[in-house]
């Protein structure tokens, strides 16, 4: 849920952007990280751990714990807590080990 009226800080601008999570169109605020954009839409489970197949989501929010990986525009294992959301981004949950990167990264 978005905090419209913060107890201390001034309100941010209302600039909304659109992105996709697993194909579903969602809204976020300009300047938010991917993790925050997902949590604002009540998505807290971002993926599944590779070995124990347990749910994972935001933990440290500082790019250190690697619990919040998602796939961004086809690139796997992106830290959602330190990457800003952008207009039209296609986010997918992190469901396992990556395929060898294709496309421009081939060879």
């Amino acid at each position: 849920m978005y905090i419209d009226h913060h107890p201390i800080l001034e309100n941010h601008g209302n600039d909304q952007i659109s992105f996709f999570y697993d194909g579903t169109p969602l809204k976020a605020r300009q300047g938010q990280t991917i993790a925050a954009a997902l949590m604002m839409n009540n998505i807290r489970k971002f993926g599944i751990s590779r070995k124990l197949r347990q749910s994972r989501g935001l933990f440290c929010a500082n790019g250190r714990c690697c619990s919040c990986f998602v796939t961004v525009n086809g690139l796997e294992h992106v830290l959602s807590c330190t990457t800003l959301i952008e207009e039209g981004m296609e986010i997918k949950p992190n469901t396992g080990d990556p395929d060898v990167r294709g496309g421009i990264h081939e060879n």
Partner: peptide, 18 residues
């Protein structure tokens, strides 16, 4: 998910407004 550090929760409310 939903278990996080206090620092992460503070980032969400004050920086991300979530």
């Amino acid at each position: 998910p939903g278990v996080m550090t206090v620092g992460a929760a503070q980032i969400l409310i004050n920086r991300e407004r979530v």
